[in-house]
Write a protein that binds this DNA or RNA. Structure first.
Lengths: 188, 188
DNA sequence: TTAATAACTAAACAATCGGTTAGTTATTGG
DNA sequence: CCAATAACTAACCGATTGTTTAGTTATTAA
């Protein structure tokens, strides 16, 4: 019927993901995406429609990759200790080939947001954050003696710590981030 | 001799600061700066040389404004309790007219950084972070029973929490951020 | 009053932004 | 083998990026 695609969409998305992860949304240009994905603009636009389309597809793929880690968190009956393990697993997940810790793709992008940001992207990132928060909540709930209010407080605290871990990775090195995690969980 | 400037440099810098604070470095354009500062490109360039020049001047001014809060932290003999107060003071400092919490100008900008970022900006932001960390350290040192290693760990923990507070402000509201602060200090 | 100086306006600069499109190349069913 | 179809290349789009510059207006010392 017609010519075959010379690339696999899921593969080029994972390549694009690296860029968004490292640089955020705005700083990543179509030119950079062309180079990194190894295909040209036409192919990118015919496959994903727009830059936003590429990004949202990357978020989807990122979410999928995170599932392996969050599944472990979901299945663990270790309560807050399970969350701690999640933070360590996440740190491994979030580093590139040079041990540079990229933080969380989603929280990095969330940090770019302001009142005027694209509502679709805003919504996607917000939903993602809520999803993780829900996982934290159900784990905290396993712990004895917490009221429903305290459970929410603790979960939000862990979410905010995740943000901190993410932003701090730009300034701190890996051992320091490990100290950070130890400190987060030192009072539980 | 010649015509007088029709603006005061420190005043237009403070106006520019609002933009960088809210939007970060990249997203803030010269066009936006012109409008917000109330002067045109020529004046901006003749006063500050470049966009980078404007930004670095903003960081300087931001640092000055923060001094009022850090001075309180420096003079307090309340140890970690003093740091807690600093976090609350900072939260007040970091909100705009609509109660939107902008986070920290410096940590917001730090979050944009990657390996390829401008080394001058990178350095300025890193120095700033170190300065705050130093303040935290001297406050933690006031507490009894901490080893030198523990003092550094605690200080880094507070710095990272500051990052978290900053990034999280994009997603959370003010009451939740207050809960976050309470949680940070609940184990001390 | 006038010449010198500096701050102003506004248009333009090359480069890049995200996005499109005309024309060519490869694949496949009939 | 050939027409139909879709993926490719590459030039191009208008808009915007940070930055510069030519020309005008205001100020002041002489």
């Amino acid at each position: 019927m017609a010519r075959k695609k010379e690339y696999i969409e899921s593969e080029v998305i994972d390549k694009a993901m690296e860029l968004f992860w490292k640089n955020g949304y705005e700083t990543t240009s179509m030119q950079m995406l062309e180079k990194q994905m190894g295909i040209n603009k036409f192919s990118i636009y015919s496959s994903f429609g727009s830059k936003k389309g590429v990004f949202l597809e990357c978020v989807k793929s990122y979410r999928k990759k995170l599932l392996a880690i969050t599944d472990k968190l979901k299945d663990s009956k270790n309560g807050i200790e399970g969350i701690k393990q999640y933070f360590y697993d996440f740190l491994e997940f979030a580093k590139d080939n040079n041990d540079f810790i990229k933080g969380c793709l989603v929280t990095n992008a969330a940090n770019e947001l302001n009142e005027d940001s694209d509502p679709i992207i805003k919504n996607q990132l917000s939903n993602f954050t809520k999803e993780i928060r829900g996982l934290f909540e159900s784990n905290v709930r396993q712990e004895a003696g917490f009221s429903e209010v305290q459970i929410q407080e603790q979960s939000d605290y862990f979410i905010v710590s995740m943000f901190g871990l993410s932003s701090a990775s730009r300034v701190f090195n890996k051992p320091q981030l490990h100290i950070f995690i130890e400190n987060i969980f030192s009072n539980t």
